[in-house]
Design a protein around this nucleic acid. Structure first.
Lengths: 215, 215
DNA sequence: GTCTATATGGCGATAGAC
DNA sequence: GTCTATCGCCATATAGAC
């Protein structure tokens, strides 16, 4: 495994990633991957026996790049506001650098949820502890009769939506203006953090529910 | 076009919808659609000349079923809290009845955004008016230096996330317990509405003079 | 390691009988 | 309208020379 082979292999994974993201597993063509990598189909099968295995390699690499950072981001955070802050910052930054990741990821979520769950749970992420932590540290303003999972769904949903719905959302609410949408995404991190920062700071027992800018 | 033909045609669209939802346009097989419909491939091409046209028919039907209701839901709503209430109720109810719609829809968003945008804008939905209305009626608690699109992204994201991320989210945070997740989804409508209800109660009364615009 | 050439199979689509 | 049979193509995968 010399330097040349490494280069070719990495080149393949790089362009395969692009094609898989654009077309999905079924829509991707080995020919197109070979063309973009400047090689031929036979060489693809030399490095990765099959299309499926190539896809696995690509997906594994992507996951292994993002997940440790993410796990580190949410680990050892002892209060909810800080956790949210870290989460929002990390996610928005990551998605802006990898705009097509959500599409790629959600495709797999539906085609291969078991593998993804397995990969994720292999990391130092413990959902039960996370939930327990959330439940005990959620501020008084959070209605205790509701599951803490709602909080996770809220934050993740608000972070994800502009990216996963981008092609349509940009067309409808930004006249398909690429630059305007990027400005929207840029300011969104600040917006979310400012909107969420009050959470946990002011505990007013008289209020059942604080206004939505907490969330 | 007698009753028998109608039945066959509708049966095809019904099962085609299922297969397209499960596998996507590229992943779907005409053979599988024919099998599930209890007919053969040739008959598929008799009713719909090509796979693409079959897909168009399916997609158009889905859109035409949901969009008018949705447009009606958000039309003639004159204040933001009521709009959010209607939106959340409608969306959660719809998604619970059509759990795989988000997957289907988001696949198309990336493969064919223009067609979807065209279909949506053909309805009586006017994004510009909607934004203008939002901007003028957003309560004081909403930081005015931010775009009103954030509010839309927030509500949509929070509604969508549990459905579009379900296969993974259910595995990780609900031990893949189907019934528990359904209870989570059921209570989520109440949760979101209760969480969002404070929004707009503090807004400036001077802005309420205008009669309601269509969105 | 990289190539050309080819095998193999599957898929969309059509022809034509009934 | 519905079927059987088949065409033609294209994609994955392999064989084998260099």
């Amino acid at each position: 495994m010399n330097a040349l082979k490494m280069d070719t292999q990495e080149k393949i994974i790089k362009v395969a990633h692009e094609v898989f993201v654009e077309k999905g597993l079924q829509g991707a063509r080995m020919q197109e991957i070979a063309d973009r990598a400047g090689i031929n189909k036979a060489l693809l099968h030399y490095y990765f026996r099959s299309k499926d295995q190539l896809f696995d390699a690509v997906f594994q690499k992507v996951i292994n790049e993002v997940l440790p950072d993410f796990a580190q981001t949410i680990r050892n955070v002892d209060d909810v506001p800080k956790l949210i802050f870290s989460f929002v910052s990390f996610y928005n930054q990551f998605f802006q650098k990898n705009p097509q990741f959500p599409q790629f990821f959600f495709h797999e979520i539906w085609q291969n949820p078991d593998r993804i769950a397995h990969v994720i749970l292999a990391e130092e992420i413990h959902p039960d502890r996370m939930l327990q932590n959330l439940r005990s540290r959620l501020p008084d303003v959070y209605p205790s009769e509701f599951l803490p999972q709602h909080m996770i769904a809220n934050v993740m949903g608000m972070c994800l939506f502009p990216h996963i719905a981008r092609p349509l959302f940009q067309r409808i609410f930004f006249q398909n203006d690429e630059k305007e949408y990027n400005r929207f995404l840029s300011e969104r991190t600040d917006f979310l953090i400012q909107m969420l920062k009050g959470l946990g700071e002011t505990h007013n027992p008289e209020m059942d529910v604080r206004p939505s800018d907490d969330f």
